[in-house]
Design a protein around this nucleic acid. Structure first.
Lengths: 335, 335
DNA sequence: ACTTTACATGTAAGCGTTTACATCCCTAAT
DNA sequence: ATTAGGGATGTAAACGCTTACATGTAAAGT
């Protein structure tokens, strides 16, 4: 069933059919009805390839992320997908894992698929090394690139970020003000936002001259899902004699492992150990006591990302970088 | 940069360029090299639309799921996406939510996008009412449909399911054998696999005449992420005087809420309350004690789904339904 | 009544591939 | 030397749509 069949059955030319298909104004109400009628009767839908060839767009946005099974990224993908769909766009998902080469390949692949834009979900896509970010700039030469929680100052790339630095700074200050001086920072990522979070903690601690030992910065290598391994890591630190009465984690899973660690060692929360997580994910309610966590307003970020994207695709001038501040949500793991 | 530019620069016809692009055999090694050289030098990539128009396939598989932010579904999507990519296919993701109308729309949309197949992730897509499943059959008339954890006997639809019935039956038997007679069944979905799980529990209980009260079947309505609400629900049951020394949950989140419930009421696990969850997700390690849970081998299912799909696309005869059995992974919430 | 205008519709030329078919040239068999 | 055969290459038609341009028609203005 092609546009020719429809035009024939409706007794008009293919141009007219195409016009009603594309909502062109130059069609009389009568013929529009007639054509629409035939289209519905035969359940005709235009061939997407041919349409793409003609229009050079498929109303599809590429989504690139490291790992769609990550709790936080999955949420981001979900919001973005939803909001795109309600604006008439589809999304093409690519999970790249964490190697640069795969990322470059996936990005090119998406662009070859003729997506109208690609949004990079998560800051793992931004590198310290300028050279490594060139693949993003190359891509941006073809289509606008949207960065969720990552920032890069380059033509045709737009960044939507949460102010992780300030969130972490303020959370640390508040924990210090509550009377905790020896605060361990527990993190597992050296990504763009990972660095910003760390910097926030660091500033708060250094301002008060509390960052006495490099041991207070603890990096966990390993799967972002492997809570037992994280717990074990903390227990090892304990055995090694490291002492801390506060723990700030760069992710809720890390914080959760701290709760387990405390539970297994009989350390009381929050009287002997205060804990703050990050992301305010569903995990915060899964534990006892419930986890104090920083909410970085993912849905707001996504909402804004999509409206920026739609603006860009519409040819409007849009802000290159937008920053949203987060919020500390207090629960049982802090005083 | 089109195939014409390349053919010109390489001094051959577009047909030859197309042949090397598609790995056709009828090209001399010398010209193949020459053309490849030009292609690489100019970083040419064929236009996906034009190619699609000619070949009528885009090497893209549609993925339909209710909610990609669901822990379990997200994992499934991840595995499928990975395995597709490593076989040269891309994936187009659609989250439909839980209404039939949205599903029908999304499915049609994917097919209009000319995907080569669509895989439905999660059994929420299968309805009791035969009539409601017709949308799947309609779709199957166009492209093969793959069902992950849902089954439908229809032409051109292939089902890959875990044997939730047996897993649940055996888990229930084991809990009974461990000395627990009053086992609450806690569930939140009446989907295809939801029903099968329930039936497994039911059989085990009824065989021993232990299903004394309908109160032992507790349905939780509400967000699959809202653990506090689930916990509250259980506490309400307790207040209402319902007594149980075992709880089997259709999902780990539900089981987690039971752990919280026990914690808040000072009920000892597992001596006073045994708990079994479902999915063996990352949540099982996030709590104290760690959660005994049924692993339904999601990765195996996905692996199998993809190889079946590739077989089907390859024109081979493939099994219409494949069943994998699960496994009870014992941890601290059971004796 | 005749021109102008504006709107509705049709015609045909792309868009960038794939591929059936035609052509050419070279090798090998007679 | 002649010819059949086959591999390499080119030509051109298709794929199904969009859209600039041409054409036609009816209402409005003179």
């Amino acid at each position: 069933m092609t546009i020719y069949d429809i035009s024939e059955k409706a007794g008009v030319s293919i141009a007219t059919v195409s016009r009603v298909l594309n909502g062109s104004s130059n069609v009389s109400e009568k013929t529009r009805k007639k054509v629409l009628d035939v289209i519905n009767r035969y359940e005709y839908t235009p061939n997407a390839f041919a349409r793409g060839l003609g229009l050079n767009t498929m109303k599809t946005i590429g989504i690139l992320c490291a790992d769609s099974s990550d709790l936080y990224l999955a949420k981001g993908i979900y919001y973005i997908e939803q909001k795109l769909r309600s604006n008439g766009y589809d999304s093409l998902l690519c999970c790249t894992g964490y190697t640069l080469e795969n990322r470059i390949n996936s990005l090119n692949l998406l662009i070859n698929k003729k997506v109208d834009s690609v949004v990079l979900v998560g800051s793992n896509f931004i590198y310290e090394n300028e050279e490594n970010n060139r693949y993003i700039c190359n891509a941006a030469a073809q289509v606008p690139i949207m960065l969720l929680n990552g920032a890069l100052d380059a033509p045709n790339v737009y960044s939507i970020v949460s102010d992780d630095f300030t969130s972490m700074y303020e959370a640390t200050c508040q924990m210090i003000d509550s009377g905790v001086n020896d605060i361990l920072y527990y993190y597992n990522s050296a990504s763009y936002s990972g660095k910003r979070k760390l910097a926030g903690y660091r500033l708060a601690m250094e301002e008060r001259d509390l960052l006495k030992s490099p041991e207070l910065l603890q990096f966990y290598r390993g799967s972002h899902e492997d809570i037992p391994a994280m717990t074990e890591h903390l227990k090892q630190l304990h055995r090694d004699g490291l002492s801390f009465h506060g723990l700030i984690a760069a992710d809720d899973t890390l914080a959760l492992s701290a709760i387990k660690y405390a539970g297994e060692l009989g350390i009381a929360i929050p009287s002997e150990l205060s804990i703050i997580g990050y992301n305010n994910s569903m995990l915060v309610n899964s534990c006892v006591p419930e986890l104090t966590s920083i909410d970085n307003k993912l849905e707001t970020l996504c909402q804004h990302l999509i409206s920026t994207l739609l603006g860009v695709l519409d040819g409007r001038e849009m802000p290159k970088k937008t920053i949203f501040s987060g919020e500390l949500v207090r629960r049982g793991t802090t005083r």
